[in-house]
Every structure is written in C-alpha cells, then in structure tokens.
Amino acid sequence: MSTAFVNGVTLGYDDVGSGGAEPLLLVHGHPFDRGMWQPQLRADTGRRVIAPDLRGYGASDVVPGVTSLETFARDLAALLDHLGIELAVLCGLSMGGQIVLEFHRLLPDRVAGLVLADTFAQGETPQGKKERNDRADRLLREGMAGYAHEVLDSMVAPANVAALPDVAAHVLRMMLAAPPEGAAAALRGRAERPDYTGTLGGVRVPTLVVVGRDDGFTPVSDAEYLHARIPGARLEVIEGAAHLPNLERPADFNRALDGLLAAVSAGPAARAGAAAWSTAAADVTKH
C-alpha cells in the first residue's frame, strides 16, 4: 500500500500493473474499502490499476461530519494529479458508481471510460434522505456490527454466503472495520446527492453498466435506467450475484470489465462515443 496527502487528507491506495493504456481507477462502495477490489487488482491488464481507500474508510483519514460526493470525486482527481495521470478509466460500485458519475459531471475530459456497477443515477427521495441520516445516527451510536450483520445477506446473495464463505467473511470484515464516523459522513453526503439523470445523455466515452441479477439494493431496473440513457452503453447482468458481483462472480465481472477496457484501448474513435465499441468488446456475452 502507498499513501498520498491530497486535499488535506492522507489516502491509502494500491497501485499495480503498468502499460501505455489509460489507467483504471477502482472506486469502492459503502461501507467497504479498497479490499473489495482484490479480484480486479490485476497486473495483466496492460495498464495501471489503482484502488484507493476513500476518505473515511480503510487506511485513509477519517473526517467526521458530512462528506459529499463532490468531495470524494475531487479527492480522486487530486490523487490522479499526484500520480501524474491526466486521463483514466473510472470503475465504481454502488456509492462508488455515484462518485464516478460526480467525477464525470465535474471533469468529463479526464474520463476515458466508465464502469457503473450496481449503482443508480436518481437523486435521493425525502424518505431516502431521512433513512440515510437515521442510519448515520445509528452507526455513530452503535458502531458497525449490528448493521453489518443485518445487511450481509443483501450485499452477498444468501446462496453465496453459504457457497462462498471466504467471500462472505471478507465482506463482513470490511464492513466491521469501517470507521463509523467516516461511514456516517458518507451517508449524510449521499442523502444530499444530486440527480445525475440529466448528465447521462452527455456521456461520450465507452460505458459498461453491470449489475448482479439478485441485487436488492440496486436492482436490474436501476441498471436498465442507466443503460437506456447513456448513448451506446453496454449492459451486463451477472447471474448468481447480488450487490457485489465483482466478488461473488469475479470471472464474469472481469470478462465484462475487460470488454470495456478493450473498447477504450481501441483509441480515439472509441473514446469519441460508446457506440464505437470495438469488436473485442462486442464479443463479451451476458452471464
């Protein structure tokens, strides 16, 4: 693990691989850390792969209060600056996907491709805002244990909790290790997030929308919403997975991710529009 001091906080991150292609930046969800990307931290992609801990999580500094999606996105941009990276492929899951959408809203010229995994674009409802703030209060009051055990069967499909005990244990460890102050600050920030629907039609880079078939937090309908509004986006539904298909079905997730990376590597024509996905990307099949 390496560290970088950016925007007044120290971020921990992993940095593997090399190559001339645009680096891949992996953005974790809540309440996890960069460890959720273990199956994607591969040195064989022909590019650098960078997985940071967001502020408030993992090895990064904990900042209590409210952490907006814009703050997370600007931290990532500052990390890329620190690493001398101007253009990157951004892959985010759940909250990470919303951070990626915010990054694209702020800095579209720095995005070479998008992966939006198990996430959604719509703004928060009044009820959702209350629930997120109530959950933040609970985490500060009780810690992570009760919440983590309650949602494990939603993060990982119940069948996979039994069939993939190492994966389930890894997911539970990450949730239990999340600092309550950082997790609560992120929840309060997400309660105030904007609606990204209006930005989707302006995406001009290859985009993969991927979702676990059995995801109850962000169901397939949320992925279809994104897919229908992003020009030329590709939709991949991962069978036998819930909210964390990258961990539950890593081979299928990586196959879809590799298709997106192939499209980006096709060059400026592909970057000019997702409809220009290469033949290699078109060979990716739904699983």
Results as ranks from 00 to 15, higher is better:
T45N: 09
A88F: 00
G267I: 10
A136N: 03
L244F: 11
G19Y: 06
P108A: 08
P52W: 02
P268Y: 04
P219F: 05
G19A: 02
G56H: 11
R110P: 05
F120Y: 14
T10G: 14
A263N: 11
A274K: 01
H104W: 15
D166V: 10
R42W: 03
D118K: 01
E236D: 13
P206L: 01
T285W: 10
R213I: 08
V62D: 09
T199C: 05
A223H: 05
L139G: 07
E224W: 09
A262C: 01
G189W: 07
E248H: 05
D222T: 09
R204M: 01
D53N: 08
E150L: 12
F120R: 13
L208G: 01
R42P: 06
G128A: 03
E131D: 10
G29D: 05
M175T: 09
A185K: 11
G92E: 04
Y147K: 05
Y225D: 15
A51W: 04
A178Q: 08
A276H: 15
R55Y: 04
A223G: 13
D109K: 14
G216S: 12
M36W: 00
K130V: 14
H30S: 15
D195P: 06
Y147S: 10
V9L: 03
L208Q: 03
P126N: 04
E181Y: 14
Y225Q: 11
G198S: 05
P39W: 02
A241Y: 11
L107E: 12
S278V: 03
L26W: 00
T199G: 06
L260T: 02
A117P: 04
L80W: 02
G20M: 07
V16D: 05
A51F: 03
A136T: 03
E150C: 06
V210Q: 03
L208R: 01
R234T: 09
G216D: 13
L93F: 04
M144E: 10
R193V: 04
E181G: 11
P245T: 06
F253R: 02
H28M: 09
A274T: 09
A280D: 13
V16E: 10
I50F: 05
T71D: 09
G58N: 10
V220N: 04
A186K: 02
G128I: 02
V111G: 00
M155E: 08
A43D: 13
A262H: 02
V237H: 11
A177C: 11
P219N: 04
T45L: 13
A77R: 14
L11T: 12
A136D: 04
V62G: 11
F253S: 03
D195A: 02
L257K: 00
G17H: 01
L101Q: 12
E239Q: 15
